[in-house]
Every structure is written in C-alpha cells, then in structure tokens.
Amino acid sequence: MTSELREAIRGVRDRVKLADRRVVNTTDRTNVFRQLTGADYISLGALFVGWASALLFVRGEPNWALLAMFGAFCLDKADGWYARRTGTSSPFGRQVDSFIDIFAYLVPAVLLYHFVLAPSVFASLIVGFLVLAFGGLRLVRHNNDGFGSDDGASYYHGTTVVHTNLVVVANYFVATFVGGWNGWLAGLLICAACPLMVSDYKAYKTDVSHALAGLAAVVAAGLALALEFGYL
C-alpha cells in the first residue's frame, strides 16, 4: 500500500469518526426526553392512535378508522387539560402538540377523502395538498403567534385543523346518507374551508366550543358504529 493511499484512507476515517460528530456541550443541544412532560407523553399517545387511524383507512376500514381518529382527538384534548392542571405548559410542548396535530387531524382527513370520497386521483391530489398545506401553515403561525386575546377571551387566528377535519368527516356522512352528494361537491367544500385556517377569523377558545366539538365527535362515532354494524 502506497503512502498516498494510506493518507487517503486515514483522511476518510478521520472525517467519519463518530466521536467528533457528537455535540458534547449541553448548552448547544436540547435533550428531547428531558424536555417531555406528562402532557407530551399523552400527545405521543394521540400520535400512536392517529397512526392507527391512518392504517385503518389504508386497509379500507373507514368506520373503525374514524373511531381511532376520535380517540386521538380525546387524547389531544387531554394533553392540554393535563398541562394546564399541572402547570407544565411550555413552548416546547406547544411544538410537540402541533407536530402531532398533523397526524391526528390532517393526515386522517386527507386519507378519508382519498379512500372514500375522491372521484379521481386528481381530486384527491388537489384536496389533499390544500388540507396539508393550509393546515401546516396554520400550525406554524400558531406556534409563532400563539393565542390572541379579546377582552380576556382567548382565540385562535383562523379556523383550526379540528374544524377542517370535521368538514371532511361531515362530508363523509352526508355522502353516505344524502343522494346526489358526491366527491366533487365534497372536494369543493373542503377546498373552500382550507384558506379559513390562515384567515383573520377569530375562533374563540371557550368551554362551549370544546363541548360542541366533543359532542360532534360523539355523534360521529355513534354514526360510524351504526354504519359498521349495519344499523344504518
């Protein structure tokens, strides 16, 4: 082996030495697991159930997928309640919550449209892109701006990903029970709802709004079970 070849091999070895690639100064890195709180672990539970929902949509089980998605919704609400109750809310936790909202609400919504409602791949491409794009931008803006305040009442800037998800779910049931309602009409309605997520609309965060969202989830879960077992 020539000296030039040995030098070349030594140079490659030095460049890929793992010890030199590790950040050792704790001020330059974030230990993710030490940042996680109980609320964040509940959020990760929502991610797990949301992923189960996605797999069920892919397997052609929309009603069971909806039930799993509503389970993710319950866990998503539980993490916020736990964070407020224990005083563990943090900017890091808000980032975790927004990341998981993508898989708890946006991904199941586009999969529901794609596998059940979409009349063509083109329609699914457009609707899925708009839901994910506007939903992602809405979550980024929320992380940057936080909640607005109006006479002591907190509000979201624009509609939330939960609202958009409910629009898709509502279209699923309307298409099931109302003759003449189809994937094209559903797609147009969903596309029209997407820009509202980055609008200046004030979606107030109140106990009533949470109760209504919970009631809608319960009703939708009941309809999904009734469809699954042939009662409707």
Results as ranks from 00 to 15, higher is better:
V96C: 07
W184A: 11
D76N: 12
F229V: 13
P62Q: 04
D14S: 10
K202E: 11
Y155H: 05
H157M: 10
V131P: 04
V127M: 00
A68V: 04
D151N: 14
N165Y: 10
E7L: 14
Y82V: 15
D14V: 07
R29H: 09
F122E: 13
S3C: 13
G60F: 03
Q95C: 01
A83P: 03
F115L: 01
R6H: 11
G135M: 05
W181V: 10
N144Q: 15
R138V: 07
F99L: 15
V208R: 12
F33Y: 10
G222V: 08
W81T: 14
D200N: 14
Y82P: 12
G148P: 02
L67E: 09
R13V: 12
V116G: 00
P195A: 00
F33S: 09
S43P: 05
R13F: 08
W64C: 14
Y41C: 12
V96M: 10
D200I: 07
G152L: 07
M1D: 08
L55E: 09
L189T: 15
S149F: 13
A217L: 00
V168G: 04
A54F: 06
T27F: 12
L5Y: 07
V32S: 06
A8Y: 11
L56I: 04
G38N: 01
R59I: 12
F99D: 07
L75R: 09
V32H: 08
F73R: 08
T27W: 11
L18G: 13
G187P: 00
L139F: 01
L225A: 15
V168I: 06
Y113K: 01
L5M: 12
F99Y: 11
V107T: 07
L185C: 03
V49C: 02
L66H: 00
E7Q: 14
A192P: 06
T88V: 05
A39W: 05
L188C: 10
Y231I: 14
P195K: 01
R94A: 13
G87E: 07
K77A: 14
A216D: 04
L67S: 09
A78S: 12
V49F: 01
A224W: 04
L139S: 01
Y105V: 03
D20G: 13
K77V: 14
A170F: 09
D97G: 02
R34Y: 06
G152R: 05
S154H: 11
V131I: 13
L139R: 02
W64F: 15
S43A: 12
R59F: 13
H163V: 10
D76F: 08
L56T: 06
R141A: 02
A72K: 09
N63P: 06
T26E: 08
L188T: 08
S120M: 06
T2A: 05
W64N: 14
I190A: 00
N144E: 15
G60S: 03
F229D: 07
G60V: 02
A213G: 13
G11I: 02
G222A: 11
D40F: 08
F99G: 07
R84Q: 09
F134V: 02
V49W: 01
N165D: 10
V198E: 10
N144A: 15
S89Q: 12
